[in-house]
C-alpha cells in the first residue's frame, strides 16, 4: 500500500484551559485521491481534528504527518499548509480581500508565487469551481455557496494535494450546499485531490469512500457508508441520524420485507422496491 497522504497516529489534543482532551487517541489514514468523511455532533472534536491536520493545532500526544512531513516540526508548517489546504465553516470569515480575484491571490502572495504566474493560476482555480465570471465581484455581494467556492478556489490556486473541509456547508442553504458538494466531488474525481469532509449532514457522507464517526473526542465507528449506516439505532446513540432511506430500509426489513443491506438513497430504495414489488 502506498504511503497515505495524511496520517494521524494515536493523536490526542487538549485545549490549554481545559483538562479534558478534545481529541483522544485518534488514528486515521487518508490514501492519495480518497474522499473520507468525518461525522459527529457539535462538540464531538471533529473540528479540532481538522485543525490538527494542517498544523493549526499541534497534538499533545501522537503524530500527524502530511505527505511524510511531521506537523510538529515547524520547518514544515508552510509546506504542509500549502499541500493540505483548508476550507472553514463561515463563508464570511475566511475571505480577506475586497475583490474575489484578489482573495484567490492571497495564498499565492503569501507563499511568494511570482506575480507573472498568478493570473493563470487564479483563472484556473476560479474556473474549476465555476466562479470565473465573478472574478471582479466583491465577496459581500455573493451568495453563501458562491463565497465558499471562492474560498475553495483560494486553496486550489496553491495547488494542494488534499483539502480539509471543516463543516463548509453547515451555514449554507440546500442550493449552496449542492453547489459546493458538486464542486468538491469534481475536484476529487477529476484532479485526484484528496478530500477530508467534516460535516453533520448524513446525506453528504453517503457517496464518500469511508465514513468515520466521532463521538466525545474519539473515532467510534469507521467503514464504508453502507456499513456505518446499516444500524440506525447505533448511529442515534452518537446523537446523529442515519439517512431517511436507511431508516426506512430497517423498518421495512423489520416488517419482513427482504430489502438488501446498504440502501442509503432514494435511487437505491427505488431499485429494491421495484425488485421486490414488481
Amino acid at each position: 500500500m502506498p504511503t497515505p497522504i495524511i496520517s494521524v497516529d494515536h493523536v490526542s489534543f487538549a485545549y490549554e484551559e481545559e483538562a479534558r482532551e478534545a481529541v483522544r487517541d485518534v488514528s486515521l489514514q487518508l490514501p492519495r485521491g480518497s474522499f473520507h468523511a468525518i461525522l459527529g455532533q457539535n462538540g464531538s472534536g471533529k473540528s479540532t481534528l481538522a485543525k490538527l491536520i494542517n498544523g493549526l493545532y499541534l497534538p499533545t500526544k501522537g503524530t500527524v504527518t502530511v505527505c511524510g512531513m511531521d506537523t510538529a516540526d515547524d520547518r514544515n508548517t508552510w509546506e504542509i499548509r500549502r499541500r493540505a489546504g483548508m476550507v472553514f465553516q463561515n463563508p464570511d470569515n475566511q475571505l480577506v480581500a475586497t475583490v474575489v480575484e484578489e482573495d484567490v491571490a492571497f495564498g499565492l502572495e503569501n507563499i511568494g508565487v511570482p506575480t507573472a504566474e498568478m493570473p493563470a493560476r487564479i483563472e484556473k482555480a476560479l474556473r474549476d469551481v465555476g466562479m470565473l465570471e465573478y472574478a471582479q465581484r466583491a465577496p459581500h455581494t455573493l451568495s453563501g455557496g458562491q463565497k465558499q467556492r471562492v474560498a475553495i478556489a483560494g486553496v486550489l490556486a496553491m495547488q494542494p494535494e488534499a483539502i480539509i473541509f471543516d463543516e463548509s456547508t453547515a451555514m449554507l442553504d440546500p442550493r449552496g450546499r449542492k453547489e459546493v458538494m458538486e464542486a468538491v466531488k469534481q475536484l476529487n474525481r477529476e484532479q485526484g485531490i484528496t478530500v477530508l469532509w467534516i460535516t453533520h449532514f448524513m446525506e453528504e457522507a453517503v457517496h464518500c469512500d469511508r465514513v468515520h464517526i466521532m463521538h466525545d473526542g474519539q473515532i467510534v465507528l469507521s467503514g464504508t457508508p453502507r456499513d456505518v449506516f446499516a444500524d440506525p439505532e447505533q448511529i442515534r446513540k452518537y446523537r446523529l441520524d442515519a439517512p431517511p432511506m436507511a431508516r426506512l430500509a430497517v423498518q421495512l426489513r423489520e416488517a419482513g420485507m427482504p430489502i438488501r443491506d446498504g440502501v442509503l438513497t432514494a435511487e437505491e430504495m427505488t431499485k429494491e422496491v421495484l425488485r421486490l414489488c414488481r
Partner: peptide, 8 residues
C-alpha cells in the same frame, strides 16, 4: 485562523 491556514 483562515489566514494562517493560507500560509499568511
Amino acid at each position: 485562523m483562515a489566514m494562517e491556514a493560507r500560509c499568511y
